[in-house]
Design a protein around this nucleic acid. Structure first.
Length: 583
RNA sequence: GUCCCGAUCGUCUAGCCUGGUCUAGGACACGGCCCUUUCAAGGCCGGAACACGGGUUCGAAUCCCGUUCGGGACACCA
């Protein structure tokens, strides 16, 4: 492949029938990286030839998702990203980038093909086709449509011109088709497996196979990187290209990505997880419907029952979100939007996805494999020959680990900014509940402990204590026993308890000014020295009093985040409850 | 069922093309220890894989064939 003579053009061509799937991110990313690497163009084309399933809102969502990932397209629908940068456009005048707006082109090509008998109208009804399929099935053969030898072309053309509804099929020559794939090598498909597939549907829209070939030609696409599920479509595309005298682009079929259990990653996984959790917890349809009354449109118990019993049924994204929050489960992330909401960083997502099927094959200075890199590195190092052949499983734990280390490596201020951006979109109330200084403290404490941004705001996350009202702190029994009631040796007070130490320390705390993490820590040091106790014995007592558990960030940070009033209130309440329990 | 593709630790993978340096390396996860006011992070250590069978060769994870297993495609969806 000579990189000097050809201007590389790659493309990502989603159909706008939903959100951008995480698997789509990798396909888009590889096409993007390949174009960048060769100083070519990456274009985005919207394949909206399925009139029933395509939607404009879905198109917008996909553009947003791609842009958020940092995958910018040189050509395609115009879009302004979050920092006001324009993406897309049509510098070579090859648009439109919506297939639904290219019908004239497809029809011109179809007419020419019919003229040359490269294509022909067919009038079979769906029922007839179903019967043929059934017949083939019974004969243990795979069904393939071929024009019958008795086909009367003249008559068929007359019927078509008379306006009789029909599809147009490709008159596929019986020839061996060779597919050259940069990942898989040469693959040969025998003539007996070719078929006369449909080029134009009865509704006048092109099929995927036809539109893709025409568009790739007319848009000058040189390299097609796509999922392996398209491998069996490729001989069709190549046969069409040959018949039409088109260039054959370079193909690279990417290995597939599955769930950890080997199942297909699908939107239905969210329904499955929610359904199983409801069943396990014996939550009735009525209770679920009750939880979902706030969803628009409201969902009634009958619908819930159907959803519970029928695996093929799905609840709306909103409904699933509300339900999962109410029953306190985490839904599996499937779409880019899910990962964004969960608080994964776009660069980390790109990094991790790139590793599923591609590997830079380089070492770090310490001898370990180079695995962590940014999009710029990918753009500079991406190559087809390092794409693997084996399917992979999506490992959320590894993604989370990458995200955690990326977060930990960030300066505090940057992390706080990222978290504020996240709040803006997903939970703006946090921004009004915490003043700027407290939010910064919270972020500093959370940063080394969270894997995602959403974890910062989670009541069960490492700084969850800050999101619980003072009166609602639940004191863990075992923690209370261990940190407050168990005897503690003090050189000045003899045998005492955490609770007693806590009472003493609380008054010192009240006198602290300023109430900062550093001041609290040094006051704590002084207290332990004067009382001759270990730091742990008092620190754990405080921790249990203000968080209800023995786990929290550093005690200075923990108290500073809460502020003096909240600390006092929590400590008082704890002491009260403990003494009641003791008495 | 037919066609197509694939096969290295639990998972992602390096190594394979250009056989020996591989008693197979790394990462995530897991277990242990250390550090420590808890948690997280960090440090150290550990268990863990060439699917199987034939060939070629002095020598095979690497090349060839077969078996098995896994996956994909078989629409007027894309």
């Amino acid at each position: 492949m000579s990189s000097t003579s050809t201007h590389v053009v790659t493309r990502f061509a989603p159909s706008p029938t939903g959100h951008l799937h995480i698997g789509g991110v990798r396909t888009a990313l590889f096409n993007w990286a390949f174009a960048r690497k060769h100083a070519g163009s990456f274009l985005l084309r919207i394949e909206d030839t399925d009139q029933a399933r395509s939607s404009e809102s879905s198109t917008r969502g996909i553009l947003e998702d791609l842009a958020w990932c940092g995958i910018d397209w040189d050509e395609g629908p115009e879009f302004i990203d979050e920092i006001g940068r324009p993406i897309g456009g049509d510098p070579r005048s090859v648009g439109s980038f919506f297939q639904s707006k290219r019908l004239d082109l497809y029809n011109r090509v179809i007419d020419e093909m019919i003229e040359r008998d490269l294509a022909y109208p067919a009038f079979d009804t769906p029922d007839q086709l179903a019967a043929l399929r059934k017949e083939a099935d019974a004969g243990k053969q795979s069904f393939r449509y071929k024009r019958s030898p008795s086909y009367d072309r003249t008559k068929a053309l007359e019927r078509m011109r008379a306006g009789e509804p029909c599809v147009v099929r490709f008159h596929n020559p019986d020839k061996v088709v060779r597919v050259v794939d940069e990942v898989l090598g040469d693959i040969h498909f025998q003539p007996e497996h070719t078929d006369d597939f449909v080029l134009r549907k009865a509704d006048g829209f092109p099929t995927y196979h036809f539109a893709v070939v025409v568009d790739d030609q007319h848009m000058g696409v040189t390299h097609i990187l796509r999922g392996q599920e398209h491998l069996n479509n490729t001989p069709r595309h190549v046969a069409l290209q040959i018949a039409l005298g088109y260039r054959t682009p370079v193909f690279a079929h990417l290995p597939l990505i599955f769930n950890a259990d080997g199942s297909k990653m699908s939107k239905r996984d969210k329904d499955k997880a929610a359904r199983e959790a409801c069943n396990k917890a014996l939550i009735s349809a009525e209770m679920i419907a009750e939880m979902l009354t706030i969803v628009e449109p409201p969902i009634v118990a009958d619908e819930v029952r159907q959803w519970q019993s029928d695996k093929r049924r799905g609840l709306s994204a909103d409904a699933l979100r509300v339900l999962s929050a109410r029953i306190n489960i985490t839904l599996p992330e499937i779409d880019v939007e899910d990962f964004r909401r969960a608080g994964y960083l776009p660069d980390v997502i790109c990094n991790y996805m790139a590793l599923l099927g591609w590997n830079p094959g380089q070492k770090n200075p310490d001898g370990t494999d180079l695995e962590k890199f940014d999009p710029a590195f990918l753009a500079a190092n991406f190559s087809l020959d390092r794409i693997g052949k084996t399917n992979s499983r999506f490992d959320r734990a590894k993604l989370a680990s990458f995200n955690q280390s990326a977060i930990a490596a960030m300066p505090d201020a940057e992390f706080a900014e990222r978290f504020r951006d996240w709040c803006d979109v997903y939970d703006p109330s946090i921004l009004s509940r915490f003043d700027a200084a407290r939010l910064d403290l919270l972020c500093t404490a959370a940063k080394p402990r969270v894997k995602t941004l959403s974890e910062v705001a989670s009541p069960v996350g490492p700084v969850g204590f800050a999101f619980i009202p003072d009166h609602a702190v639940a004191f863990d029994h075992a923690a209370v026993d261990k940190a407050l009631k168990k005897p503690v040796d003090s050189t000045t007070h003899g045998v005492t308890t955490g609770a007693a130490l806590l009472r003493d320390f609380a008054s010192e705390l009240a006198a602290l000014d300023p109430f900062t993490a550093e001041a609290i820590e040094s006051s704590l040091k002084a207290f332990t020295e004067s009382h001759g106790v270990k730091v742990g014995s008092i620190a754990q007592a405080i921790r249990v009093a203000v968080t209800g558990s023995t786990v929290s960030p550093g005690i200075g940070q923990t108290l500073a985040i809460l502020g003096l009033d909240s600390c006092k209130s929590r400590i008082d309440r704890c002491l009260r409850e403990v003494s009641v329990a003791v008495a």
